[in-house]
Amino acid sequence: MGEVVSGLAVFAVVIAVGWALVRFGAVPAGSDTVLTGVCFYAATPALMVTTIGGADLATVVSRATLAGLLAETLGIVSAWLVHRFALRRSVAESTIGALAAGYVNAANLGIPVLIVLLGDATAIAPILLLQLLVISPTAFAVLDVSTARGAGSRPAVWTAPLRNPLLLGVVAGLVVNLTGWDARAAAGGLIANSLDALGALAVTLMMLSLGMSLAASSPRVTRRLTIVRVARLRAPGSAADGADGGPAAGGADGGVDGAGGAAGGGPAAGGGADGAGAALDRGERGAALWVSVAWKLAVVPLLALGLGTALGLRGPALLVPVTTAGLPSAQNVFMYATRYGAAKPLARDCVLLTTAGFVPVVLLAAVLLS
């Protein structure tokens, strides 16, 4: 238990440093976008290659992994049924609500949390594969049909999982592991040392990025960012400026966040008009939001606990599936909601609330299972 608390304390301190850097002006608001890009395209894929490349795959294909996979799948399906038939939301809104209730932030929070708490992030690989290869394509199919937008009109969305650097890192790690290729013997160790150096950045950069994004989502900082962007647009030569750092930067932010960006950044920054719309329908939308939040922070972890117990896991062995199940909603969900115009306020707010609430869930699990 002491190790878990100590690990979470380190996690909190580094996040707080990231928050303070933006809050007190040491780095500009929006800096989390740069760190998130580094993590998403370089550091985390390298970490996946080195972690999975040297892992005992028997521990990946384990009862703990199976419990986590089943819990997420059952959580998403059951949440969809509640949204659709109990809350009477549309198919598209139910799909976004279900994803918010079960699709976890496996990359930007899952990896550092598992490394800090358990010392190994190997268990997150099957979750990433499930989400990128099964859940995302299935969600796209349902959303395409329910919003009357044919799959042919959205090739970039459908092929996104196959172009995801995290997926490529997982696949490369599996190839290295299964073939027994010795990266340290290749090119005089240059490849292995480079991957180690990049992978070592991942966890710290992810936590700093999360803190920065939380600071940037505060009303004061968001207002300041908006003023700066408007000033850039009005300045002479604004088209060129926009290409270098204005609207284009915002677009990159959305892209990285949607693919696994730091929790809290994209939704908070993009939620002004949607937040006003949500206030018009607090009853129904509020119920849908709290169902998704409750599913993410309580129902899915309890499913993982029950399934793990049924599979014969006891004590600390249950901490892996329960921890992965309790991770907050991924920002991918907000990207999907934005692209398909369904339940955007729910997706945004669920990401923020579950990001704030997952630490007590992990602590409670550690107390009960350690």
Rank of each mutant, 00 (worst) to 15 (best):
A16K: 02
A273F: 08
A29C: 14
L302Q: 11
L353V: 13
A26D: 00
A141K: 10
G271S: 15
L307A: 11
V359K: 03
V77Q: 09
R184W: 09
R234G: 07
A278D: 05
C39W: 08
G7S: 01
T355M: 06
S31C: 03
L198G: 11
L128R: 11
F11R: 04
G258M: 02
A20C: 15
V293G: 10
R89Y: 02
A29N: 11
K296G: 00
A121L: 02
G169N: 06
Y41V: 13
L318G: 02
L233S: 13
L74A: 10
V256G: 08
S136W: 10
R285T: 10
L167V: 07
D257S: 15
S94H: 07
L210I: 11
V362E: 10
S146A: 15
N164I: 06
R229F: 03
A278W: 01
G68A: 14
R234V: 06
P328C: 00
S6K: 13
G270K: 03
S194N: 06
G37F: 12
C39Y: 13
L74E: 03
L352K: 09
K344W: 04
A202Y: 14
G188I: 07
P345W: 00
G119T: 03
V13E: 12
T323Y: 13
G266P: 01
V351C: 09
T179V: 13
L87H: 00
R339C: 00
I111L: 03
D281M: 14
A187S: 11
A365L: 08
L47G: 06
T323E: 11
G211V: 01
G150A: 15
T309N: 15
Y340T: 09
A67E: 03
V145A: 15
W19V: 05
S94W: 05
L363T: 13
V221H: 06
V113C: 02
V5K: 09
A185N: 15
G286N: 06
F24A: 06
I127R: 03
R234Y: 09
L99N: 04
D244A: 05
G341I: 08
R234D: 10
L303N: 06
S213D: 00
L66I: 03
T324V: 11
F40M: 14
F85G: 10
D196I: 01
A125S: 08
V203A: 12
L368M: 14
V176C: 12
A55C: 14
V116K: 06
A262H: 04
T355Q: 07
G341F: 07
S213A: 09
L364T: 14
L214R: 05
G180R: 12
G245K: 01
W290N: 13
A337P: 07
I15H: 07
R234E: 12
Q331V: 05
P126R: 02
M207P: 00
R348W: 12
L205T: 13
S218W: 03
S153L: 05
L74Q: 03
A71K: 01
G173I: 03
A262E: 05
D244Y: 00
A216V: 05
G242R: 08
G246R: 00
I191A: 10
P236T: 04
A185Y: 08
A29P: 13
A26E: 00
P316R: 12
A298K: 05
S292L: 10
A139F: 02
V203T: 15
D196L: 01
